[in-house]
């Protein structure tokens, strides 16, 4: 494992930190009501919660696509919401993001998709770009698929290509939005292993947003649980597995009912039927 303290890509010990972050797409209904999170450099951290709990919103806030209504967000020591457009774009060049389902550009080949950030942000000659693209594809095991189009790829392959694209510029921070969603068991294993290996081999910091507890427990260093707009639990995988917190237990055990209720809020059943009579 490389020495994270001499990692040249991220200058600070803490890669990402959120403090008291509040956000709602509709100002009157905040999704995040005060998020506190610290992600040290070189670590692989998962953000988990039920669907709609605001996990993807946290990623968008870190990446500067959204501005928090309160609180501060720092990436590599710089406050993201306060950055000017050019500074924000410069920061984004050092962040890689894997979108749910890949978000590959459908009008170009796999090769061009990965070459895209290289061509846009560097002046490298075509030969060097070709070598870099093939290296990234090799890292995810898809060097032979370079000439294919995104529409010809399976879900798992598309996800891996998107991963290769996310690390094309050797970022210091990579964010994964639901990398395990909709994959078959083999692909799940592959993607999980790739995320862990890349994190260690490249010395990057990784943030995964997911609700796949099983795969996450296998690979992550730390987990944050988000519910009702706040962090309700956190810890390393061992701590989480042994936790007695009812929310964590419901999540880990996959129980249908618990702190996260099964029923969507509604009038009691007897009352409902009585009204019809």
């Amino acid at each position: 494992m490389p020495d994270a303290s001499v990692d040249p890509t991220c200058p600070t010990d803490i890669a990402v930190s959120l403090r008291g972050v509040r956000y709602g797409y509709d100002r009157r209904r905040p999704i995040l009501k005060g998020i506190d999170m610290t992600i040290p450099r070189g670590k692989l951290v998962a953000i988990m919660g039920t669907s709609g709990s605001g996990k993807t919103t946290i990623l968008r806030l870190i990446g500067g696509q959204l501005r928090p209504q309160a609180g501060e967000i720092t990436v590599a020591g710089r406050e993201v919401p306060k950055l000017e457009r050019d500074e924000l774009f410069a920061l984004r060049r050092r962040i890689g993001m894997l979108f749910q389902f890949g978000a590959l550009f459908t009008d170009m080949t796999v090769f061009d998709n990965i070459a895209f950030p290289l061509r846009e942000h560097t002046e490298l000659p075509p030969d060097l770009i070709r070598d870099l693209v093939l290296m990234k594809l090799n890292a995810v095991g898809l060097r032979g698929a370079a000439r294919l189009r995104p529409s010809e790829l399976s879900g798992g392959m598309a996800r891996r290509v998107a991963l290769a694209r996310a690390i094309a510029l050797d970022p210091m921070l990579v964010m994964y939005d639901e990398p395990f969603a909709g994959l078959d068991p083999i692909s799940l294993g592959i993607v999980g292993q790739l995320i862990r290996r890349l994190n260690d081999a490249l010395g990057i910091t990784s943030v995964i947003v997911t609700h796949d507890i099983y795969e996450s427990l296998k690979i992550v260093d730390y987990i944050y649980f988000v519910s009702d707009g706040r962090i309700v639990a956190e810890g390393a995988p061992d701590v989480v597995r042994a936790s007695s917190d009812p929310f964590v237990r419901q999540f880990v055990d996959g129980a249908p009912d618990g702190p996260v209720p099964f029923h969507y809020p509604a009038t009691p059943l007897l009352e409902e039927f009585a009204r019809g009579a």
């Binding site: 984004r92 962040i95 978000a103 950030p117």
Partner: peptide, 17 residues
């Protein structure tokens, strides 16, 4: 469609307007 499949978002995150 590019907006729906998050391709525009991906471009933004790759610092391409």
């Amino acid at each position: 469609l590019m907006k729906t499949t998050e391709q525009l978002s991906a471009m933004e995150m790759m610092a391409v307007d």
